[in-house]
Design a protein around this nucleic acid. Structure first.
Lengths: 340, 340
DNA sequence: GTGAAAGCGCTAACAT
DNA sequence: ATGTTAGCGCTTTCAC
């Protein structure tokens, strides 16, 4: 059906090899010949087949990206970063959305392997699965570089790029302390997730360093969703020895807090200070000035992709590299301590 | 390097063809033989090459998806929908982010063509470009089905799935009218975009049908970004013959309105009613009950993908199909008319 | 400078 | 029920 390199060769009156040479700018081709070939290409509207080329060169120039939830802006940003770098290197991206579903993740891995992609960037669905990491190891043995983005796969040592959640939470908590708060509550994420654990650690660390006793009553466990945060906030507001500030472990959960605040007519920061983890553009736009720890999301994707390209180049080096990116802190005023 | 079908054939003591048969469940294979082959596959940890298969069958089972901005949740949702259906049919997705950049879009198209993808789903960067649509037509002639999602490419007739923006805006405006409003302002999107135009049309249509004269002073042109909407809202609030309600042509712009309202201590709906286009989950979560027209975003992706699969099946039928999805309206109370 | 030919890993007639 | 063989469209030695 489609026009092939043979058609071009025939049309230009040269051999396939010559066409291939002008296509790839390799070897010597007399300029006159080159022109003939280019003309034929144009006239027949020829587009070379990457498939055939891949088979011949055993290089697909394609990488696989696996995310648990493409419609979540967080992963959108990561993919954006990946895409930016991939684009610079003319690499194709095969995207797999696993729906936070283990089986789909395995299926995706299998599909990608069949596609002979040259590397994988993955934000694993869960950090707690052995099977998955075994499968990843299989892939690794298969010779495909794998880069983890902001997720840790148990029992396996892969290269990856991560966020320093401990530091982020530390700084957020510290900001509250420096503002004058001593009674600081935290609403955590689900405790089987590494980032959530790390954020709690960072929170505790800050308290310890500033000699503030850790009060277990001030630790509320959420799940990154807004409902639990809403409930937790309601509880907090009813405490007799109420905290004066809340460190909220995720941006979605902050929405739950705000809802509770609105209902109880709590003003930020006059009645309660707050600081969150991860940006939520929307709140800034409407003029709710919530301070937050800003995870370097696009950068996560960019760095991951760069690492992948690195491993693609140095195939020999099987070394494991881990890069940790530091979040920064953006203060908008919601962390202030207002004397009553 | 990798293990091939030949290795399996050798290991199992059969021919390549037989291996291929068990791989594809085609033709007859004695069960005993099949077992031998499967055993060899397992032992050698063999994964067939989709590349080689593609070359041989001239079917890649891969489609291309082109979006202008992957980190925009709107496109994330669309891709989610596409991905869901693609997954059911074991189709791979090559993702291209064009950064709203024409050149990148062309480059993406070229890359996809090289990859011999079987179809394309595209949300075009701009509806106003001739060059692009010419390129698309080229592609169409090349024999690849193309499905447009929520974008219209000038001069070209492609199949696609669209949202009935006129109807949506009509219903939104109608809701305001039915609530008792007569003085209704609109903040439009950029007027070179089809959806924005259509929404304005819907707004006017509703006014006309309910015999409300169209007041040009009530028509403010925005650009889908929040800043312009903020400014427009400020102006609206200063008008001497102030409207009692605003129809806002996008969810991002509603944020600009809310910011202005907050600054001017305007309460919704007591001081001003409002209704927007497209959902903004966040606002609901924090308990701001903004009514809105809900575009069927995921469904856009799902429907687009289904259409693509259809055209893949009926290669002969070059017919152009257009499906228009109806948005629905979600009333939360912000549309109410409060007597003063 | 250019061409001939082998081969990349698979499928699909066609034989047997 | 299984094997033989000819491609699929390209790249890449190796000759000339």
């Amino acid at each position: 059906m489609a026009v092939t390199i043979n058609d071009i060769a025939k049309e230009a009156g040269v051999s396939r090899a010559t066409v291939s040479r002008v296509l790839n700018d390799s070897g010597y081709v007399k300029d006159e010949t080159r022109q003939k070939v280019l003309k034929a290409i144009k006239e027949l509207n020829y587009t070379p087949s990457a498939i055939a080329r891949s088979l011949s060169t055993s290089k697909t120039n394609t990488i696989g990206v696996i995310v648990p939830e493409i419609n979540n802006p967080f992963f959108g940003e990561i993919i954006k970063g990946i895409s930016q770098i991939a684009d610079e290197h003319n690499l194709n991206i095969i995207l797999c959305d696993t729906d936070e579903n283990m089986e789909k993740e395995l299926k995706a891995l299998k599909l990608l392997k069949e596609q002979r992609i040259q590397g994988i960037i993955i934000t694993p669905t869960s950090a707690e699965t052995e099977f998955n990491s075994e499968y990843l190891r299989t892939l690794e043995n298969f010779g495909i570089p794998i880069i983890l983005v902001d997720g840790h796969v148990k029992y396996a040592n892969f290269s990856g790029v991560f966020v320093d959640h401990i530091k982020g939470a530390y700084e957020g908590t510290e900001a509250l302390i420096k503002a004058g708060h001593r009674k600081i509550a935290i609403i955590t994420g689900r405790m089987n997730s590494r980032p959530a654990k790390d954020r709690l650690i960072g929170y505790k660390k800050a308290l310890k360093i500033y000699n503030i006793p850790i009060n277990d009553e001030y630790i509320f466990h959420g799940d990154y969703q807004h409902e639990k945060a809403y409930e937790a906030t309601k509880k907090i507001l009813k405490m007799k020895d109420k905290p004066t500030a809340i460190f909220v472990s995720s941006n979605i959960m902050i929405l739950g807090c705000i809802k509770a605040f609105r209902e109880e007519k709590i003003h930020i920061p006059n009645d309660m200070a707050i600081i969150g983890f991860d940006k939520l553009e929307v709140l800034n736009i409407i003029g709710m000035n919530i301070s937050f720890i800003n995870g370097p999301t696009i950068e996560l994707g960019r760095t991951g992709m760069k690492m992948l390209i690195d491993s693609l180049k140095n195939k020999k080096s099987r070394e494991i590299r881990r890069i940790t990116l530091l979040p920064d802190i953006v203060l908008k005023g919601s962390e202030k301590y207002i004397e009553k």
